[in-house]
Write a protein that binds this DNA or RNA. Sequence first.
DNA 1: TGCCAGGCCCTCTTTAGGGCCTT
Length: 211
Amino acid sequence: MPNTPGNFTAIVIDFETTGLSPGYGDRTIEVGAVLISDNRIVDRYQSLMNPEIRVSGFIENFTGITNAMLASAPPIIVVMNQLRAFIGNHHLVAHNAGFDSRFLDAEFRRIDHTRTNEFACSMLAARRLYPEAPNHRLDTLVAYKRLKSDGVHHRALADAEMTAHLCLQMIVDLETGYGIRPVTFRLIQQLAKVPRKKVHDFLSKSACRGK
DNA sequence: TGCCAGGCCCTCTTTAGGGCCTT
């Protein structure tokens, strides 16, 4: 679906995992994904999944996801096939996208699927758009921008929804603060890669191109 | 049980080091 004013379309995704590195054997234990379209969340997907390895006490405390909960969860391969169907051909957004893309790609490889969807990183974009924020952790940015939150942290769907609200806020701020219309997925993706000292020039030129 | 990474980005930089982010 093309991006038209008020119709930024992307899937915002978040994983809870057993650790930081799929290359060292870490696996996904929960995924949350929300579809943003027409400046709002229009669809959601969430599932726990059984990694078939025990998660550490740290992860149990960090996420609230216990080994007992995962024992009765569906296998990762089942969830990945459902996730693949939910994602479809949509663009993807994640907070620190390098992390989630590595896990997504690693789990997709196990179902013989290669991701072709492009990622944009809300953390890198927020660093450029909100350089004055105390830091650029997801929960800090949600509080800083006074975004909608149910108070749940480090659960996949809650984090995906917070990231989606952050993304929608960045779109509003780019529209109202810089006069950029429409704010496309491509613009957010490019903003995240612009050298910080050139952000102002990039946004000024983006505003001119939209006129 | 505790450990493991990788990319970005700044600076006391570029023949490097360390903090920030994600779980």
